[in-house]
Every structure is written in C-alpha cells, then in structure tokens.
Write a protein that binds this DNA or RNA. Structure first.
Lengths: 333, 333
DNA sequence: GGCAATTAAGACACCGCTGTCATAACTAGG
DNA sequence: CCTAGTTATGACAGCGGTGTCTTAATTGCC
C-alpha cells in the first residue's frame, strides 16, 4: 500500500494537518514537533501525492513548457534551463510540443491547463507570438512567461536577448574585417527574431555607409536545407559576396556544405557566420563564428520569473556574445 | 470557476457517474444518453481534472520518460516518439532527466513515482541498465519498458535494434570497399550498445580474415571532443588507417574535423563512418556514411508496449539501415 | 498574576472524480 | 404473463491531501 500523510502523522504522533504544515513549510510549528515529523517522513520515505495536493489545494506543483521548434539543440537547451529551475523549486515540468499552425492549438493548450491545473506556463518562441495561444492563456487567467517574444511585450513577463544588436555586432565585425559584399540569410518567417536579425544586419550596413542590396539577401527557414539553397543563390557569379551571415547555425552549416561542394575554401574564399552558438557550431568544419545566444539561461531566468511571489511584469534582457572562430577572416585584398 | 463533472451532469440531465462512464468509454450506457453527455461536454468545453481522476481511480493518465543522455538529437527523437504514442492514448508524458551516476538516483525515481502515480515508465539508454533504477521500479511494482537495454533482457519488455549486426554491416561495407586498416572508436562505457558495436566490428574483421589490431581501436565518450582525440591518436604515421568507423555520429564529426585540420581530404585520403544517422550526419561535410538507428520508432514502439492491455513481456527488434553517403569511398590502390 | 496577543496544534469539510453496490429498466424464454 | 438474466443508471463513500475554523498553549506586558 501507498504511504500517506496519515501514516506519517501516526508515526510522528501528530495530526495530519501538522504534517501538512511541515510539508509546506508553514510557520506555527514548534521546532521539536517539526523534527518529529521530518523524522517520520524520512523513516517512511514519504512523498506526498501530487494529485491529492492539487485537488485539495490551490497549487499543482507543475508547470508546462510549451514549444514548437524543430531545432533539437534549441529545445534541449530550453528544456534543460526550465527543468533546472523547476528542480530547485520542487516543481515538475510538463513538456508540451504543439503545432502553432494547428487549428486546435487553443483547444490543446486549454485542455492541458484544465486537465493538469498547472501553476504556470513557459512559452518558447514561436509559440510566444501565436495569438490563439496567448488569448487562451489570458482567458484562463494563468501566469505565463515568454522566452524571446517578438510582439506584445507589455502582455507578460519575458526574457530575451537583443537580436538586432547581436546581428548588428556580427555584421559590424565582418565589416571591420574588410568585407563589403556581405550576404544575409533571413530566418523562418514565423519567428519574430528573424526580423530583428535582419534589421540589425541592415542597420550595421547603413552605419558603415554600405548600401543594402536585395540580391545579397535570401529567405531561409532556419534549417540546413534552406541554408544550402540560399548559398546556391547567393554564390552566383554576379553576386560575389565575400562573406555570408546566416540567421542561425543550421543554415550556416548548409552554406558551408554548399561552399565546399563547389570547391570554395572557407574562410579563404568565403567567410561564413552563424547565429545561436548551438553545439553544431563546433561540429562543423571550419568551426563557426557565431553569436552565443544564452538559451539555457534564458529558460532558467524565465522559469524564475514564473515563481516570483509578486507577479509584477518584468522584462529581463540577457547578454549575447560574439564568438569568433575559424569560419570568418579578413577579406583578401 | 472551473467546469466540473457536476456541471456536465446537470446540463446533460444525468448523474455524475454516467458522465464518468462516458468519459471512460465504459459500456452499459445507452446511445442516446451518451449523446447527451457528449453534447454537454462539448458545450461546456469540459476537460476532466487529472488530479481528481488520479486520486479517485487506479490510473493517472501519465507516464514518465526517464533519460540521461546528452545527445540532443537522440533525446529529441526519443521524446518525439514517446510523445506521439502518448497523444494517441490521451496520456501525458513527464520527461524526467536524471543523472545515473547520482547517489540519489533511486530516491529520485521513487519520489517521481510516488508523487505522480504514473501508470508506467519508459527507460532510455543508459538508464535501462542502471541497477538502482531497475530495482526501484521493480520494488514499486510499476510497469516499464526499456529502449535498447544492454542487460537483463528477461526483466521487462523492450525494443531495440541489433547494434552488433549494424556495426558488422558497416565494417563489412568498408571491407568490401577495399579497406583493410580500419580504425574504430568505441562508444561511452556506460552504454551497453558500445560493447555491441565494438563486437560487431571485430566479428566482421574476423570473418574477413583481418586481424584485430588494438592500436587501431580507441576509447571514446560519444561526443565530438572524444572523436577528435581518437582521430589524433589513430592518424599517427605508424597506424595509417584508410578508414575510421566511429560508434556514433558526433564522434565521426570530430574525426572529420581533425582530418580536415591536418589537411586530409575525406574521403580521398580517409573514409569516415558514423553510427545513428542523427541530423548531424547531414550537417557536416562530407555527409556521413552511417547506420540509421530508428530512434523515434523505437520510442514509439516502446510506448505502445507500455499501453498493451496484456502485460506479457515482449521484445521487439527494429531494423537498422546502412546509409551510404559521401564520407566513405573505395580505398585507393 | 491576569489579560490580550500571539503561537501551536487539531477537527473537519471538501476538492472532483472513480469504485462499489443497489436498484431500475429492459429482454428473452417458457 | 412471470421470472431470471442482462443492461442501464444512480447513491454514496472515499482517494490523500489542504483550507478554514476552533481551541489550547505560550508569551509579553502592565
């Protein structure tokens, strides 16, 4: 049979309510009483039933992480960050993949909340900007924090980095290395960060007095294949970029692959830069110059905001970092 | 206020027990009664409280996926497979990372089960072979299925692939391409699959009448860095392998990187093969010849076994596939 | 030492469902 | 038409905790 709070109370010689107080770290328990309870809990190896606590109380000790992102690296880092913070709080994490294009998105999220009574929700991009999802969460009046939202910043607490500034930094770095014809691959249109990065690229060019040339800019989807395709278009004879800056590492890897394929030497013939600093950046050759996005830390911080006692809306910006590796170099004169 | 089964029963004009019957697809409900209930559920957009169902009933509609694996690709695929199967069953998945080296492993798993009352557990390698974890699950008499266990096969249902045969296939492929000096990088010692793959490599050599040369075999840890380190050791002048077979793709990527670093052309000067066919295999250049491990399908199948009504111990072998890409070629004469 | 304020502990209802048991409504066979 | 068996539905307790309220014990202060 399952060990219950009753067993603990019997062993400790107190009422179940007192055990409950100790479990929940409430005050008004004498130290010696607390000690007896703690001892009984240890002796019986008691873990309280989440189901019962949820049903009787006003908390469920669970939060949900909702995501729709097909980059394993990104998701892995996000999960790790959320999980680590949950662990500190003694709260369970429910990982919930969704499809933001699905017609039943709101229903799924609503059902999740009703079924599980989660205490809060973490939204990762691009679910952060799915109106149906946001509306559903608002309607249920549940606390949620967004990681790198692109829109509607006043709505909730959020954590993010400055994507525009990061892209600006990278572009400026390339310019400082003498590059003037810098290709750019835009990210997935669903992600607001894509716009920001695009904007940062353009701003840096502007400031340097370099004209923005549409033929040097290509759409992408954040995946390897679209990186390859973009490279193919950008590396045509009339374009002749000396560097290509991709909006994420996967696409940069695609560019590398295509460049090798047509016999270019990176970085001698072409500099390639990525964005995100996922593990992949170091698993390709040459290793990618990229922007370190503090993904795990963003997730960790976001989860911390969710647990904040005072639910005031807070925005936390985490610092990115320009990581210079072997895939970029000074332009040949 | 929350919508409860009472609200549904009132709208439908039946008792709460009847609503419960419909929810649980029990028999002994007339079709017209069922229709009334279904309509009321839809009208109120009712989702039953998991906490209440868990507490009152004998099921929790949740299972746990326990893993300790630092390959994002692998975990991503495993999660996706488990999740897809859970979704079909209307069951929630609790993802639980653990540290199999931790002294509190058993306690953590025990606590998880006591707290959440999960209906079953999926174990992914290498937790599949952590004795404390297995003992704890046995002690709690909970159903669990293992994905690619290395030991103790009679203990539980499991799904797996034939790692030895796969490594044999790959080695044989290299031999057929004329390679005789084939280096091998062993996987992480915690993983039983490492032994199997190592064994398969050796068996293929044997069959071809090629001697097993310890200097051509190096330990690894399943990560990029250990692949690089192994390459450094293997590519010494006295060794001169014409091919290196790594026990996973991450290490193969490390080998590629080191080979490029010292100016080797892959596959002209050196063939490199991986194992797993993670996304990474196509994100490096040249793309890796590797073994496709049906990771997602393994997870999907394992979860299916967990839901099997009749809990008979079943072992399901899924087929691997030799994927030939650009990183290997005929040996130069 | 007496009284109010504070601290400490327990009694008990109840959270929203399911399991068990009782009972009502049908169906079939003689 | 009656009885037994089957099908359909409901009443009610109880799962294991927490919230609220009550009461007892202790403390502080004049």
């Amino acid at each position: 049979m399952r060990v219950t709070i009753k067993d603990v109370s019997r062993i400790a010689g107190v009422s179940i309510k007192t055990v409950s107080r100790v479990l929940n770290k409430e005050k008004y328990v004498r130290d010696d009483t607390r000690a007896k309870v703690v001892a009984a809990v240890a002796e019986l190896n008691f873990s309280p039933s989440l189901a019962a606590r949820t049903l009787a109380g006003s908390r469920s000790f669970q939060i949900a992480l909702i995501y729709d992102n097909h980059s394993p690296y990104y998701i892995h880092a996000i999960q790790a960050g959320v999980w680590a913070r949950c662990r500190e709080q003694g709260v369970r994490m429910l990982a919930q993949p969704v499809d933001i294009a699905s017609a039943t998105l709101a229903q799924e999220i609503g059902g999740l909340i009703d079924e599980t009574h989660v205490d809060g929700v973490i939204l990762s991009s691009p679910v952060t900007d799915a109106p149906e999802a946001l509306a559903e969460l608002e309607r249920r009046n549940i606390r949620f924090v967004r990681i790198s939202p692109g829109t509607n910043h006043a709505l909730t607490s959020s954590v993010f980095m400055d994507d525009a500034q990061a892209a600006d930094d990278m572009t400026t770095h390339l310019i400082n290395q003498g590059h003037r014809r810098i290709g750019f691959v835009i990210g997935h249109p669903n992600h607001m960060a894509s716009d920001e990065r695009h904007f940062g690229y353009r701003r840096a060019l502007d400031r340097a007095g370099i004209g923005y040339e549409p033929s040097l800019v290509r759409p992408g989807e954040f995946d390897f294949a679209s990186g390859m395709a973009a490279a193919k278009a950008l590396l045509s004879p009339q374009n002749k970029p000396t560097a290509i800056f991709a909006s994420n590492d996967d696409m940069a890897a695609g560019i590398l692959s295509y460049a090798h394929h047509i016999g270019l030497d990176v970085p001698r013939d072409l500099s390639v830069a990525g964005f995100d600093d996922t593990d992949l950046a170091q698993l390709v050759w040459p290793q990618l110059t990229t922007i370190r996005q503090p993904t795990r830390d963003l997730a960790f911080a976001a989860t911390g905001l969710l647990f904040e006692a005072d639910p005031v809306i807070t925005h936390q910006r985490l610092q990115h970092e320009l990581i210079i590796r072997a895939s970029t170099t000074r332009v040949r004169s």
